[in-house]
Design a protein around this nucleic acid. Sequence first.
DNA 1: GTTGTATATGCAACACAGTTGCGATTCCGT
DNA 2: ACGGAATCGCAACTGTGTTGCATATACAAC
Lengths: 142, 142
Amino acid sequence: MTMQGHALDLARDKIRGTGARMTAPRVQVLAAMLGTQRVLSHRDIEDMLGAARLDRVTLYRVLDWLVEQGLAHRIAGRDRVWRFSATGEAHETHGHFQCNRCGKILCLDELSAHSVPLRLPAGCRPERTELTVTGLCAECTV
Amino acid sequence: MTMQGHALDLARDKIRGTGARMTAPRVQVLAAMLGTQRVLSHRDIEDMLGAARLDRVTLYRVLDWLVEQGLAHRIAGRDRVWRFSATGEAHETHGHFQCNRCGKILCLDELSAHSVPLRLPAGCRPERTELTVTGLCAECTV
DNA sequence: GTTGTATATGCAACACAGTTGCGATTCCGT
DNA sequence: ACGGAATCGCAACTGTGTTGCATATACAAC
Ligand SMILES: [Mn+2]
Ligand SMILES: [Mn+2]
Ligand SMILES: [Zn+2]
Ligand SMILES: [Zn+2]
């Protein structure tokens, strides 16, 4: 409860900082993301909200907005589902691990995408390097 | 025509090599993939086949089968679209570049995923490392 | 060649992530 | 309070990929 209260306050601060409107959906979604270490899918967040349910489309739009504002980052897994995280700053550049069985994504904070030496075809303008290791997570290893 | 004939013969050889049935859909799809350097989506292949149209589901199943047999590789991009390639052997390990605007994928043959030093959380078993650079391709740069 | 059968195809219906348009609501500066 | 732009909620839609099942066919045995 204290933890959740803190996440709510933090979420409100961050949203206030953008200068845009502070709305219940934005606060709730960002607080949910701040309150966990996990990388959450749209569906994960829907489930977490439970009672405070909000429209599917609104959730998609809030997530897009959080990414635009730099308050969250978006990760593409091999299951072709977007996942979102609000923790840390270096997330744009570090690698991720995705479990082939349960789909869970972990952040590999020590694995920097910047350490990869780029040599691109002529004319290509790189924007971002994504580094994803797939395999089995500790819980799914038999 | 000579080029296409060669791709057809090569496709037939490879399919015969699996010991499974040789069917028109398999030959046509594999030949289409062997006849290009590009990394093709389901839709790309449908368009290429044109007259020799075949059922959507059959195409999905042929692609799955080609991957199972090791005759093609499947690449996950940032959009929710699988892309396939029959060329080379190193697709599992080298990096790829995907254009944020047109979705095209290029192979970065010189960028090896093996060069990335892994340091995973305890218990995680890595199977594959994916390295994708996103940005704008030469044709989409304004 | 004919036949039998496991295998592959084609169709219809479905699942699921994500998007678009638009009218109704609400945040917030005045 | 008030007004208007920003945001929300709903419905309908798109696109990719999957499942179930009846039909067709590759190919091995004869
Ligand atoms: Mn991360
Ligand atoms: Mn490749
Ligand atoms: Zn797992
Ligand atoms: Zn492009």
